[in-house]
């Protein structure tokens, strides 16, 4: 394929991928407009429940947040497919350079924080960072950001907790149990508490940061519209101060804080997994296992 000429199939696929990015968000915005009840001024509510599916233990609530978070997932998938479309050894598309930059940055981050042994984690870290960042940034479009709902982040944190425990168990089950009695046996309850505090604090940190942004933006909105409410005539009808001024706060709370929290969530994931992994015990266990296998082979022979 030459550098300038793109085939029709290529362009059609491009359009499909771009639609995959845009349409979910458009759908989420339409849904938001359709289901949001009329309220006076600014109201602070949680996610709106759309459907309620009966389940054995507890009813499953399908809320706005699930829809938005799936929209974000599909949009990220579309973005990645768009970026990787037309990869070649000699890059002739700008998007390939962007993609290479992203992959390189993520690899560097994982390399410097977790080490060579955990390079397989790079896609997961990149995915969790993208998911978190795009979820927070989706509030710029006016839809309910998935990260300001506790359940979504709790899900991620539980996933990370399972990962941490899985890597801790790699050193053997007894080594894992013994790690609770470090440095002395009296500390066991403390260690158990701190073990369960990990996902809780990860959840609360991310959720609290995004939620504080949402609350403060809403309060500012109420304040600004109450300033103009007293003015006579048409001026009092239109809260014109609410145009533009909240954007300054949004710059911090939505863009900076959202990206920072995504980075920190990924950082903490890397730190916890890499620090929890008992390298020496794992090597010993591998060696023991190899010896046992060798002995068994010798017995058979």
């Amino acid at each position: 394929m030459t550098a300038t000429k793109k085939s029709l199939k290529f362009i059609l696929l491009d359009i499909l991928y771009l639609a995959m990015i845009i349409l979910p968000f458009a759908g989420a915005i339409v849904l938001k407009v359709l289901i949001t009840p009329q309220t006076e001024g600014v109201s602070l509510t949680g996610a709106i429940i759309l459907w309620q599916i009966p389940m054995p233990l507890q009813d499953l609530y399908i809320t706005e947040v699930q829809i938005n978070s799936w929209a974000v997932v599909i949009a990220i998938l579309g973005l990645v497919l768009f970026l990787r479309h037309g990869l070649s050894v000699k890059p002739y598309l700008k998007r390939q350079l962007v993609l290479e930059w992203i992959v390189e940055q993520c690899d560097n981050l994982v390399m410097s924080n977790m080490g060579q042994a955990f390079m397989g984690f790079s896609p997961f870290i990149c995915a969790i960072m993208a998911l978190s960042a795009f979820s927070s940034l989706s509030s710029l479009l006016g839809i309910f950001p998935p990260t300001s709902d506790l359940n979504i982040i709790a899900g991620w944190a539980i996933l990370v907790f399972i990962l941490i425990t899985y890597f801790k168990l790699k050193g053997g089950f007894f080594h894992y149990l013994k790690s609770y009695t470090e440095p002395i046996a009296v500390m066991t309850p403390m260690n158990i508490i701190s073990e369960f505090a990990t996902p809780v604090s990860m959840t609360m940190r991310h959720f609290g940061n995004v939620l504080s942004g949402v609350v403060i933006s809403s309060l500012l909105g109420v304040f600004l519209s109450s300033l103009t409410a007293g003015l006579p005539g048409l001026l009092g009808q239109i809260p014109f101060l609410r145009v533009g001024i909240p954007a300054v706060l949004s710059l911090y709370f939505d863009i900076f804080s959202g990206c920072l929290q995504a980075f920190i969530f990924a950082m903490l994931t890397m730190q916890y997994v890499a620090n929890g992994f008992p390298g020496e015990a794992y090597e010993k266990r591998l060696k023991r296992r190899a010896e046992r296998a060798a002995r068994r082979a010798a017995e058979k022979a």
Partner: peptide, 9 residues
């Protein structure tokens, strides 16, 4: 960000 956690609680 880690130090902020207590405030967020």
């Amino acid at each position: 960000a880690v130090a902020e956690t207590t405030g967020l609680y």
